[in-house]
Design a protein around this nucleic acid. Sequence first.
DNA 1: ACGCTCACG
DNA 2: GACGTACGTGAGCGTA
Length: 932
Amino acid sequence: MSDGFGKGCHLHLIDGSAFIFRAYHALPPLTRKSDGLPVGAVAGFCNMLWKYVTDERGSDAPTHAAVIFDHSSKTFRNDIYNAYKANRPEPPEDLRPQFPLTRDATRAFNIACIETQGYEADDIIAALSCKARDAGGAVTIISSDKDLMQLVGDGVQMLDPIKGKPIDRDEVFEKFGVWPDRVVDVQALAGDAVDNVPGAPGIGIKTAAQLITEYGDLETLLARAGEIKQPKRRQTLIDHAEQIRISKRLVELDCNTPLDFTLDSLEVKAPDAAQLLGFLSEMEFRTLTVRVAEKLGAKAPPVVSAPVRDAPAVPDLPPIDRAAYETITDGAGLDRWIQMIRDAGQMAIDTETTGLDEMQADLAGICLAVAPGRACYIPVGHVAGGDDLFGQSAPVAGQLPLADVLAALKPLLEDPAILKIGQNLKYDWKMLARHGIHMAPLADTMLMSYALNAGTHNHGMDELAERYLGHKCIAIKELIGSGKSQINFAQVPIDKAAPYAAEDADVTLRLFQHFAPLLPVERVTTVYETTECPIVPVLAEMEMAGIRIDAEVLRRMSGAFAQKMAALEDEIYALAGQKFTIGSPKQLGEILFDKMGMTGGKTGKTGAFSTSADVLEDLAAEGHDLPARILDWRQISKLKSTYTDALPTFVNPDTGRVHTSYSIAGAQTGRLASTDPNLQNIPVRTEEGRRIREAFIAAEGHRLVSLDYSQIELRILAHVADIPALKQAFREGIDIHAMTASQMFGVPVEGMDPMIRRRAKAINFGVIYGISSFGLSRNLRIPRAEAQDFIDTYFQRFPEIRAYMDRTIADAKSDGSVRTLFGRRINTPGINQSGPAAGGARRAAINAPIQGAAADIIRRAMIRMPAAIAHLPARMLLQVHDELVFEVREDAVDDLITVARAVMENAAEPAVKLSVPLVVDAGTGMNWAEAH
DNA sequence: ACGCTCACG
DNA sequence: GACGTACGTGAGCGTA
């Protein structure tokens, strides 16, 4: 062949079997809708291949590629050692039929698909690597299997497909303690429980590496085993020499595995659109089919029936056609649309504005849609491109006046018989509220997706459109650019803006039609109707109210902090013996650990030293001064940059107040999140930090009132896990942590050692988070075994908690989701993973119903609050997860506390009758520090 | 853009 | 038998 494999070529070898198992464990057990064929692993496999194929690699792109599979479980290694891989469990029932399908998938992607009877994939990969390397080419093995690491080096590298991280000689050395050419020796000694490679009993990787390093290689070691000093180790090696040699043959990969094809035949070919799409649609992978079709510029074949959860069959809709949208520039056109909306009884609406801060942005236009494909754009604020000499831009001619448009739409927008459909309607609600329009009733596609899909994916419109409509929206960047040259939406020419804007309304309407029927099917209608939608106007009003800030106080604090930091910096440089960037963990780590030789481990990921407060506190406790000063500096620096410096920049010049924005669908559990600025993490735990709250002040003649739920998550735990001891303690109003300590350690509550109570408190919190002995030991700085003892005692004393945890995990596994008391669903797609990720998914699943129920309760309180306090000169300003902050005229403080407390304490009812009381603590003052 | 660190519940 | 671990967030900084 003229262009045969050789120098300059790059061969990619994909470990297909590993892909399959990873896909199987990462995904819920999907089945093909039409016949129930299990296809979850195939789906994951295809997604991974597609991601691999579309990955941009530039000059590193492969010229040749193959996916290699294990042919069967019996290989030549079983002739060497018949127990080889004997304790491997059989593959799960529903995975087996998927093996041949993954081969079909590989061929459909037009990638060479290789397997050989009697050999493992690893052997074929080894043979191909050797052959390609000898021909002068480069090889990348896409796998993280440690058994393949012996092949690394000399033009052969590995690539971890999950982390996307190359594995080179250094990584291999880190793992095995020897270079790749001696890896088999170490493996032969250490053995492998998973593959049932015996090795030498009692010798692990560490010892093996040490021995090999000392003696050079395995044969030398075995020959000179008699010289080993440690008697036990010496005897082991002598007694098991044969077993070790067999082990080596088991782990050693053979470059001479027969291959019945040439390297040239592995040349990379573009996928054949028809073949690939045919396969994907036959598997009924709707989303992927659409995505692939789009990328290949082909028409997606119809997918007859779609996978269940992800994408139910979409009714026949006209395709999205941006040319079909109208631009409304005259009164007659507007009237016609108003009539259409009245006839339809619903409208999708989206406002286009000059910025993202809805407190300050101006309206550029409004888009409406009444049916899929029927959408319009009403420009009202577009201006000519460039600014004139005075920084003013001239309005573009031919637009309807803003006031006229709003006057015409107001009756519709406030008509209780017309449903307003939007994506993130809080934004549009606030824009319109500034013009005196109070939209109702509302339907929000973002919140529908949140009710259905929390935990599965995010809920931005572009993502939803791609996922559920198979449509890629115009990116806003294409219109307004990005970075320094970014313009605002009003400066976009109307003919460019209209298709983008109208498309948003069209897409929103289509998403609404997609989601609306799913809410009852998935039993999330109640959550959506009672805790998602009604919170929109409540939050909008809170955000518009804002909170008053004393910027002068903050500025003074900044000045004081700056002085303190300067002094600390001098001290730090002196202690370190040099100047450096204190804020750089990298430089700090080098100084502490390399230069000054303090002891502290590296972290896994980047290999950098950890300099977190945890580590520095330990060092400080050992008597080092530098880490202690660094901790001081960090604390001040944080307070200054994040709070005292930043907060004044958020003061709105028109209102003189700070207006945060709450994201309703941001957190997976139902909690809100606060941004721009985040007012949910204002310091409180240290005295110095707490003083920042003094700058949050009430308006003239007013007070701030803070009401917060006491121990709400533990109370919920007591209720849902049905723990009699805990419930009774809450009913009797006794100190819950002291009670726990008393039960665990058998000491009386009276006169308890605070240390013991602290431990019980840590365990109580640990339970909510899905406790582990490791976490508890770190938190309490006690040995792991001791932490484990505490946990054992705790579970013994409160067995209901263990039962609750097991139940929750089982639910998550069988349903793919967990629910709160109020029916909120949080999906748990990672729960069936294996490996380290599984632990995290399990803890998240345990925590979600508890944190989520607390979030539901305070949401319910917030929704009822405006009506409950309407008769009082008071308004709700902030929410901090279990706390509500109000601004009240000073003569109405007591009334407000009485009313608001009642609303909060009864918020679970009537939906849920809790078996423990909810208790709300109140505080009041001129500022937030006093009130909290 | 990403990781580290740290503020909150 | 090892893995890496408390749950949920957002912001500022340094580094790439």
